[in-house]
Amino acid sequence: MIKDITIGQFFPGESPIHRMDPRMKLILTVAYIVMLFIANNAASLLVGVIFLLIVYPVSGISGKMVLRSVKPILPIIAITAVLNMFFIDGEVLFQLWKIRITDKGVITAVMMCARIVCLIAGTSLMTYTTSPIALTDAIERLFSPLKKIKLPVHEVAMMMTIALRFIPTLIEETDKIMSAQKARGADIESGNLVQRIRALVPILIPLFVSAFRRAEELALAMECRCYHGGEGRTRMRQLHLGKLDVVAACVTAVCLAAAILANVHIQVFVLR
């Protein structure tokens, strides 16, 4: 059933990572991404892997979820690996006609793949442990200085929140409309491409109609409750930086420092 698709991929929990301030999680995720990109040899990449090996068990998110998040980008990883393996010069390990595989190529391919996997696993951990609402809240706070230069930060964050809120509703609605049209004999599952696209019309039109109706109703309801934008609004959920956040920041800082040191001093399998 279409409803079983998970979007946002948030897994509620009570782990220290879940309880962290979303702003800190966001900042540390960015720091981790930076760390992965400055890592230029095997030792510093290893630090990135170790970081994940620490935080995933702490978060209580199972390793299976890492596989699930990596699955959609497997083709990208494969292409990266192939390109690196065949097109980097070095000592030839294996040659077949014009195709050569070099030692450097293999090393680079492995390391690039490791980097991409870490990148995905690291960023997914944030979405796995942070509710979408908390995330938009954090984004709004972090970007609020931009209000000074007249960027509508609050409005954008509000739109994101509302969109996220309505994804499950719309999925449910799609499910219902699909059932209703199937009950009238609509054939959604078979036929050629043109027929299949045409078969979507009876589903999409009622869906759009109801989405617009909902949007209108929501706007009206918000106005009735005196919503007038972000100015002077207080929040129900206050964000606090706590001990946990300090600890997490320290751990990340140590890893970042280790990665930089490894970059400079332990030059094993240097990339490029």
Partner: peptide, 16 residues
């Protein structure tokens, strides 16, 4: 589906 016709709750939302 043709033999057994089903009218859903709030069927007006299926009009298109």
């Amino acid at each position: 589906r043709f033999k057994v016709g089903l009218v859903f709750q709030y069927p007006e939302y299926q009009l298109f």
